[in-house]
């Protein structure tokens, strides 16, 4: 039996609209960023998308999260083409995605306690308050944080702790897939190692699919079974992590690896 597909992109072209100068400003112009992308993430798989800044990797995540309709192609999440559904139905499905944003310092509201942050994903569930609390404590335990921090404001936490709170929030509602946007780039190396190990433990324990976006090749080899190299909005290489990073078939991948080696 084939493994169930969690996320599937079919010939997706997407981007943003720009408004040209002059009288033509009446018309919006399509500005594609990502071209003809096919992508498949199956249950329990760890996939990493590698690309430089401006290659369209974050844009790709936005469409999976259901907040950026593609110009062309179909986006399937949990077997449903989400942009063919009405907005309400779409949200019901995309709620099954756990999302960890890039910069923990910018993603937590400084005026809201950690408890409220953690409660948000559970708001629409029909659990009792006690069950919600239990869930939250359980999620915090998975990221090695103490219950005590629920009473804290984000600014009282360190960067690594904030990032772990965000990971806990992403898994508290028991999602099918964890989507991470550069999970370690804002962190120090010692905390980075901690977060990488933590993510792998969670993935193994909850048997989640994990889709990560990063520009750091060395981090990618720890977080991926399969890597996808994206350049100027096109997928140019994909395959098993070890194979792609040791014997790349494309010139660009080779260049990426050699410049990474030389700079670090």
């Amino acid at each position: 039996m084939a493994e169930p597909t969690i996320v599937k992109l079919e010939n997706v072209t997407l981007g943003y609209y720009t408004i040209p100068k002059g009288w033509r400003s009446l018309f919006k112009v399509k500005q594609p960023i990502v071209f003809n992308v096919n992508l498949n993430v199956i249950d329990g798989e760890r996939v990493v998308i590698i690309g430089e800044s401006g290659s369209g990797k974050t844009t790709l995540l936005k469409t999976i999260l259901g907040i950026l309709p593609p110009f062309q192609g179909k986006v399937y999440v949990l077997g449903k083409s989400i942009y063919d559904l009405p907005a309400k139905e779409r949200k019901k499905i995309t709620r099954q995605i756990g999302y960890v944003p890039q910069d923990p310092y910018k993603s937590l509201n400084p005026r809201v306690k950690v408890e409220t942050v953690m409660m948000e994903p559970l708001e629409r569930s029909n659990l009792t308050d006690r069950e919600k609390r239990e869930r939250i404590v359980e999620a915090l335990k998975l990221v090695q944080l103490h219950e005590r921090i629920l009473e804290y404001y984000p600014m009282q936490l360190s960067g690594g702790m904030m990032q772990r709170v965000l990971i806990a929030r992403a898994i508290v509602h028991d999602p099918e897939i964890l989507v991470l946007d550069e999970p370690t780039s804002a962190l120090d190396v010692s905390i980075q190692a901690q977060v990488i190990n933590l993510l792998n433990n969670i993935q193994r324990k909850l048997e989640l699919a994990m889709l990560t976006v990063t520009h750091d090749l060395a981090v990618a080899q720890y977080l991926a079974d399969r890597v996808i190299i994206i350049y100027k909005g096109r997928i140019i290489e994909e395959g098993e992590t070890r194979k792609v990073l040791t014997q790349p078939s494309q010139e660009y991948t080779r260049l990426l690896i050699s410049s990474y080696r030389a700079s670090i």
Partner: peptide, 22 residues
């Protein structure tokens, strides 16, 4: 030592040692 151990190196898949604490 701890800093050196915590850095991921491309091509070397050693287990990353994360020391707890702040």
């Amino acid at each position: 030592e701890m800093l050196v151990d915590a850095v991921p190196i491309l091509g070397v898949l050693k287990p990353l040692k994360a020391y707890g604490g702040e």
